[in-house]
Design a protein around this nucleic acid. Sequence first.
DNA 1: CTGAAAGCGCTAACAG
DNA 2: CTGTTAGCGCTTTCAG
Lengths: 335, 335
Amino acid sequence: MPVTIKDVARESGVNISTVSRALNNGYGVNAQTRELVVSVARRLNYRPNSVARGLVTGRSHSVGLIVSDIRNPFFADVARGAADAARSENCDLVLCNSDLDAARQMGYMQSLLEKRVDGILMNSVSALRPEEQKQLAECGVPIVLLNRSESSRAFSTVAADNEGGGALAAQHLLDLGHRNIAHITGPSQHGNLSDRTRGFVQTLMKAPVPVVPQVLHGAFDFEGARTLTHQLLDRHPKTTAIFAANDVMAFGVVRAALDRGLKIPGDLSLIGFDNIEFSSIIQPPLTTIHQPKYEMGHAAVEILLRIAGDKNKRAPESRILGVELMERDSCRRIL
Amino acid sequence: MPVTIKDVARESGVNISTVSRALNNGYGVNAQTRELVVSVARRLNYRPNSVARGLVTGRSHSVGLIVSDIRNPFFADVARGAADAARSENCDLVLCNSDLDAARQMGYMQSLLEKRVDGILMNSVSALRPEEQKQLAECGVPIVLLNRSESSRAFSTVAADNEGGGALAAQHLLDLGHRNIAHITGPSQHGNLSDRTRGFVQTLMKAPVPVVPQVLHGAFDFEGARTLTHQLLDRHPKTTAIFAANDVMAFGVVRAALDRGLKIPGDLSLIGFDNIEFSSIIQPPLTTIHQPKYEMGHAAVEILLRIAGDKNKRAPESRILGVELMERDSCRRIL
DNA sequence: CTGAAAGCGCTAACAG
DNA sequence: CTGTTAGCGCTTTCAG
């Protein structure tokens, strides 16, 4: 049985409320009394029970994070940023993996709400039924959505400038003189990736000499990209540059190029998106669009906790973080 | 203000204790009464307050996970296994990043203990002062240590068979006919890596024709390995095979080989350790020792929760999980 | 089977 | 400055 505030009170010969004050506020207590209490508490190895405290204060000092899968390096970065932001406000992070399954996600929501977390940060599954949307909106704790810039205005959101990133990629390829350009990406309705595609395609089409790229949709992972690249190059062998919707897809392109004996960037220029750690390790080091992953997690929790602090809930806040071109060795100039 | 058990009681015309029973045990309550209560609860959108429940039951249904950095893909895998195991027991996972800093680690411990988590899984910093060791041992909640097989017998532990993995790597290289073998690894006192080194070296020395490998210590990351490899090859250009203490180090070797125009496996065979996702994506796909990362996290939480379930604390349990050789394309046979 | 009551450990008025 | 008191929302005896 752990030592409680009562033990400390008895041992110091004061009332428990005095102990509480001495240990928390600090002020409003005689300096000597406080010293005594503090020393007794330390001697007894007293550890305040934050469950009990939470019951009365209504704050749990923890926030929930629901991501699809923490093994995705993107989310690992976000999680680290979120955890650090939480810690700097004396909160802990509860990690949940939804696998983008609506039922799992709602299950975790439930569990987090029962734990009375102070807020929830999530990369929500895109296809939420209106009923679930509503349930989320009315759940009573602040929610910040990740990567859902286009979402309903009911929630605060944090996302990278995906559209701007797509534009950056397009401009870079254009600047290098490419005209036979392709883009491989995920399913056409994937919000995040769609934004990248839009920025990319629009920039290409608005060029002085407009370019219309080949756009291929498929699975947005390594093998999906590999397959897509083979399809692309079978049909359009003249392609000189590919924009992959994320770095892992870019790795798939690298592999496909290897399969065909094509050199990057000699025969094919390649640009990715995300700037995961591995993109600088792979050969050739990948030119890519950097997404401030850590900062996104950090900002999201800041917003969450700010909202949680305000009693009168304010209008949801949306934050779009800037992206950046990381020039490495996978793109070359076309003569 | 969320709806409480009282609201449900009033609305169903029964006592709160009946509501509690109806919603929890299920038995000991008239079927009709229960149905009524359940339906009212649902109608009111009642969500039990697990903070209040925790205060009386003494269980928080959450476990803490302290790792050095979730961005390390090894820990991301472990965390996922841990989260899944926790979830299957209706627990949540609280994620903490220590950066292997003793102060941060103890700070998180403190915070987790105040939250009255049901157990803590951690990859502890190796250098804990005896005082801190003791503090951990007596903290009152079950602790499972990760990757600390050699640690004091005071704690339960879960680790991969690092020594066996080192042996596997050695045997593989031997089988392929290598005799000029090197091993690059981290600092000599790093428990985990030391085990790998020991298994590797001993197996080599016990071979029919004993081999004594070059062993180089340095930073156990990408750049560290790159540097170490250059040093190695400057001094021992006849080296035909390298065992890197982990996959990221192996990637550093790949880069160093590239720096020198050496082909893998043509000029140099390479074997890693961990089998992180990237090892199959890099060129050439890396032969490596697979560590059951997900399973380790899963097993650790299972043990944790089993200990937490027993009132009479039993002897600590140590589990060593098997490793496996993943043969890919980075090693070749020497004639 | 159900209600009444005690209490988990703590904070927060409210008196003194 | 400090003690008293009333809960926070729930589980759990203990009666009935």
